[in-house]
Amino acid sequence: MPYTVFGLPTHILIIHVTVVGIPLACLGVLAIAIRPAWRRRFGWWVAALAVIMVPVTYATQLAGTQLYNHNSYLQTVAAQHKALGGTLVWFVAAVAVLALALALAERRGYADHHAAMVVIAALAIGASAICLVRVVQVGDSGARAAWGGIVKTSNK
């Protein structure tokens, strides 16, 4: 993966796909877990988005590691962000697996086996909620690393 694209660090460019895509996938999984009618209609689309977000998150992590290693001044302020960001792909993978499980269970007719769907839906809701929290934690630590040292001065 190139360190820069058009003169900008790759991490800065692809982070926007991650920041939008992961919450969208998590909210989609929450929606299809709660509403069976939406699961039948949108389940495979939500599962596809969740699965796509796994390699996108991994690529963002790799680009972030390159940015971290390439700039020694970042290594003190961005250490927490790097540590949190390194775990995010596992949370996204869990959401993707459970989104696939929801869509597949619906297709295979497990909606008739109410207990099985309740268990899968509960796991999907929990994983999505935890993943949303982790995205906020990673994003907040990244914003603090990027903008924490900037002091606003008045123009008086």
Rank of each mutant, 00 (worst) to 15 (best):
V77N: 12
I52Q: 04
A31Q: 05
G43V: 04
V19C: 09
E106K: 05
H70G: 15
L8I: 15
A145S: 11
A93S: 10
R40W: 03
M53P: 05
T60C: 14
I120P: 07
T10K: 08
A124W: 04
T57G: 01
T57L: 01
G21W: 07
A96Y: 06
L27E: 01
A31D: 01
F91P: 00
L84Y: 13
A143I: 00
D112S: 12
G109N: 06
Y68Q: 06
V5K: 10
T76E: 15
Y110I: 01
K82G: 13
I32R: 03
G142M: 03
L67M: 15
H114T: 14
R40E: 09
A143D: 02
A31H: 03
R144Q: 13
P2T: 01
W90E: 13
T153H: 15
L74F: 15
G148N: 12
A37I: 08
A103D: 05
P36F: 04
I150A: 12
W44V: 09
G126V: 04
A145M: 06
R41K: 03
G109F: 01
V135S: 06
L30P: 01
A115P: 00
P36S: 00
P9Q: 10
I130D: 03
R144H: 14
W45S: 11
T153E: 15
W45C: 10
T18R: 09
H113P: 02
T65F: 15
A129H: 00
V89D: 10
A25W: 04
A146L: 14
T10W: 03
T60R: 08
T87K: 13
A47C: 08
V118L: 12
V29W: 02
L8S: 14
A94K: 02
G109K: 04
A25D: 02
H113C: 11
A124Y: 04
N155D: 14
N155F: 15
A83T: 14
M53D: 05
A78F: 02
G149A: 14
V138T: 01
D112K: 13
C131Y: 06
Y68M: 08
A47N: 02
V20Y: 02
P2C: 06
H81R: 07
H11F: 05
L8C: 13
W45G: 13
Q66V: 10
V133L: 12
R134N: 09
A25P: 06
H81W: 09
L27S: 04
L8Y: 15
M53F: 04
G7P: 05
A31K: 07
V56N: 07
H16K: 07
W147N: 11
V97S: 00
V118R: 13
I130V: 11
V29D: 03
I15S: 12
S128W: 07
A103Y: 07
G139N: 07
A111I: 05
A143S: 09
V56R: 07
G21H: 08
T60S: 15
R107N: 08
V95N: 04
I125Y: 08
V29Y: 07
L100M: 09
M117F: 04
G43S: 07
G149S: 14
H113D: 11
A146I: 13
M117Y: 05
F42D: 08
I32D: 00
V20P: 00
G109D: 03
V29E: 10
V97I: 10
L30Y: 06
